[in-house]
Design a protein around this nucleic acid. Structure first.
Lengths: 126, 126
DNA sequence: CGGTATCCCCCTCGATACTG
DNA sequence: CAGTATCGAGGGGGATACCG
């Protein structure tokens, strides 16, 4: 292992060379990499969106999973919920400061995946 | 939406403001954000590891899930498998060029998560 | 050591229906 | 419009046993 590789794994709370199981990092990683977590964060990285806009932006998400994903991310302090007591009701979702920091790390990942996805999935079957 | 925000969503294959369902990007995202995908890629980002080392590094992973995750990532061309016909057998796993590019986007994310995880999970319960 | 095969539980997720 | 409630199927994933 060279020096830069060693420092790359010098993650806060990670023992050298081990990815521990009982660690808040695992929990957050599970929330973010839950089936819809990344997509919600990426969608909100562009702009504040209403519930219905979010649902249309993220094709294929069910109401139940959108609600549940938003609740988890809100409880984690990554997403801010702003409910207006109007008729019809209006609820805006946006990223918190923490959420924006996270999204800034997620966007390069998404860009790379979307640029390379066809090379990856399009490979000859086994 | 400002200009930088608009360009940020200018993802290859993504229609403006929409995250499409039937898209290779979703498939790759699912593979990477499968329960163990990120952890395997991060572990291998440090160095080539043998099966047993990988199993010990990623605490809590079962043999079945390690095998299954490695097979998926190998089929995606992200991980390289190098089997030596020795006794006892020895199998080395490493990242391919593609896998390294991906890991380079994953490491900043993991660093941020591990640095902020306790702030996130440690919030007061609802 | 480095796997594969099998069983089976649980939990995620989708569908549907309903409400403020 | 913006949700919540309930139900049920499916498969992700763990435990165990076995093989080259």
């Amino acid at each position: 292992m060279n020096v830069s590789a060693a420092s790359a794994l010098n993650l806060h709370g990670f023992t050298a060379g081990v990815l521990p199981a009982n660690c808040p990092t695992r929990t957050v990683l599970d929330h973010v990499t839950s089936k819809w977590g990344v997509l919600v964060l990426v969608a909100l990285s562009q702009e504040t969106l209403r519930w219905g806009e979010l649902r249309r932006t993220i094709e294929g998400i069910s109401e139940k999973m959108l609600a549940s994903t938003l609740r988890t991310l809100e409880a984690d302090g990554l997403v801010h919920r702003d409910a207006h007591a109007t008729i019809p009701p209006r609820v805006d979702y946006s990223l918190t400061g923490l959420g924006r920091e996270l999204a800034d790390r997620l966007l390069p990942l998404m860009h790379w995946i979307s640029a390379n996805a066809s090379d990856i999935v399009g490979r000859p079957a086994e």
